[in-house]
Nucleic acid binder design. Structure first.
Lengths: 357, 357
DNA sequence: TTGAAAGCGCTAACAG
DNA sequence: CTGTTAGCGCTTTCAA
């Protein structure tokens, strides 16, 4: 079928070693020989066999990424960082998109096939304890992103700190009655964000009441979706109607916030005048929705993840590292800070109020 | 390093052939031998070497997807279809995310490495003529999605038909002064959508005027982005102010439409009362923005793409096939049809008009 | 049913 | 500088 280096060798009247050397830019080949070989390479339109190379050289130049598809926008931005860096470094990236957590197990095992990949990146899920031993055993480089395990390199977002800053921002704007819409408490980030929310209230001497925290997990992405946000908002309005209604709201993710905005719109409640909102993530959409939010440097996290993996591949014995990112407060219209500052910030003029689509 | 079948053979006191047979569920092995071997497999926690298997068996069980990252939401949905199907079939998917078209070339060549992948999927870009011959030469299965070439299997969206239906919808609502916001005419879809727009006007006896078509290509995704949509809208309002202003608008993509909505909001122009809008794609966001739009079955296209690839792999000599999808009109608030039908459709009540975030 | 052996196409070490 | 050779770990004949 394919042209092999034997064909090249025969055609160029040299040994296969010489051919291999030409192909790999090995220095010790005479210019004439090299020219001759390369001519034949071109003429027979030779293509090296990737797996034969990999088998012989013991390097795969491939990494895999096990990442939940349902994180959507987070997913796409992190992945772009990973892919850009991988392309730059000449690595192939096998994408293992996970829809249910059970698949994660399967894909991790698959990545463990000896010589399949040089390293693995694992995103945004709880790393299965049952797999830990396997990785340490065969010493396959692994980096956890938006997740943590003491045995492996991790990149982590300071959810607690971020949530605290988000809540502080609302407190500083003068709000006393602040509620939270959260995602499933089974996820690490949701837990940490709740903690931060509470800590900020405590710090300011405001009471923390559990019935001001609403969680909906419909839509089976652990509640990180628009519909869940919408439902939570409706529930919150029912739970605390009229004068009891909170004047400010911290929402665990931008997607949820967008759903919540839909519900508020339907209920005729204005944002930020009647309800100030700060959410989390800063997905691209947040800009359009004018959400004040805690930005996670998703692209950079992707790049860093690959860099860490590379470092680990080069030096497998170094102790596990942990890098933390602290989310950054991005102020837009939804929190009311701009309005307060300018009397009427951009996009909050009376004219703008007429638009409602 | 790793445990090989030689280790297994030695340990189980059998030949490597027998081990291989056990591993591959070959029938002709005695139950006892099989049990013994499998016990050893487990005890030594053996992992097969993927590339050695692939080299020997001549199958890679891997496919690659060359896909522009900048198509964003389109990308993620199609990819999910591909990935789901790939997982189901036990294929690995190498993701080649393209940021600039020059990278496409590089990734295609990389996919051409003999024995690297069993097939290639190519998305949403013009397939480079210079690569055509290489694929036919080595007979590597290839399927084009949202793209077309006579030599290869293609999955195509009827952009012209879709645009025509979108425009017809606006015409049927009584609009006479209809404009279009388009993406770069260098892209196939933009050309076809323009054609459809024009055809619908012609059909209705309405004049087609080129200055009612605005194209902005800022943001370097060929204009398929929010910022370009926003700019185009601003330009359109300047070009045709006051009474000349169009009452309806066909926009080449949802992302652009979202940018256009931002511009309209800033200008105090109401949608759909002052300006009816139909766009294209039906990305997830379109629902939140309440866009009437032409839906492309992105997920299904991904699944179908993989199925086609598989069919081609099984039967490499069949003539190229072409499958077309006709986009479906999804009616939401932005076109005004609901308002017209019900007097006040859901989400278009006076109360809702008060919300402006 | 099984063991032995011949590749798969390449890299890299070793002579020359 | 170059040819030869020994693997890489597995699949697959081919005898036994």
């Amino acid at each position: 079928m394919g042209v092999t280096i034997y064909d090249l060798a025969r055609e160029a009247k040299v040994g296969i070693g010489t051919v291999s050397r030409c192909l790999n830019n090995h220095p010790s080949v005479s210019p004439q020989t090299r020219a001759k070989v390369l001519e034949v390479v071109k003429r027979l339109s030779y293509q090296p066999h990737a797996y034969a190379q990999r088998l012989a050289s013991k390097k795969t130049n491939t990494i895999s990424a096990v990442i939940p598809f349902f994180t959507n926008y987070f997913f796409i931005q992190v992945l772009q960082g990973v892919q850009d860096k991988a392309g730059e470094l000449g690595f192939d990236l096998i994408l293992y998109g996970v829809n249910q957590t059970s698949q994660a197990d399967y894909y991790l095992r698959r990545s463990l096939l000896r010589g399949h990949v040089d390293g693995v990146m694992f995103f945004s899920m709880k790393f299965p304890e049952s797999i830990v031993a396997k990785f340490t055993q065969i010493n396959l480089p692994l980096v956890l992103v938006d997740a943590y395990h003491p045995m492996f390199d991790s990149i982590h977002v300071e959810n607690r700190e971020g949530a605290m800053n988000a809540t502080r921002h609302l407190i500083n704007l003068g709000h006393k009655n602040i509620a939270m819409i959260n995602a499933s408490l089974e996820t690490q980030p949701a837990q940490e964000r709740l903690e931060g929310f509470r800590a900020a209230l405590d710090e300011a001497g405001l009471p923390f009441l559990m019935d001001r925290v609403v969680v909906s997990t419909i839509g089976k992405q652990d509640g990180y979706n628009r519909e869940a946000g919408r439902e939570s908002m409706i529930e919150l309005l029912q739970r605390m109607p009229g004068p009891m209604r909170p004047t400010a709201l911290f929402i665990a993710s931008d997607v949820q916030a967008i759903g919540a905005l839909d519900a508020l719109r339907d209920a005729g409640i204005r944002v930020p005048e009647d309800m100030a909102i700060v959410s989390f993530d800063d997905i691209e959409l947040a800009q359009h929705a004018r959400l004040t939010t805690m930005r996670q440097p998703m692209y950079d996290m992707g790049v860093l993840a690959l860099e860490k993996l590379l470092a680990r591949m080069r030096n497998p014995s170094q102790p596990p590292t942990l890098t933390s990112f602290v989310p950054e407060l991005i102020i837009r219209s939804s929190c009311g800070a701009l309005m307060k500052a300018a009397g009427s910030g951009p996009g909050l003029t009376p004219a703008a109020s007429g638009i409602h689509l």
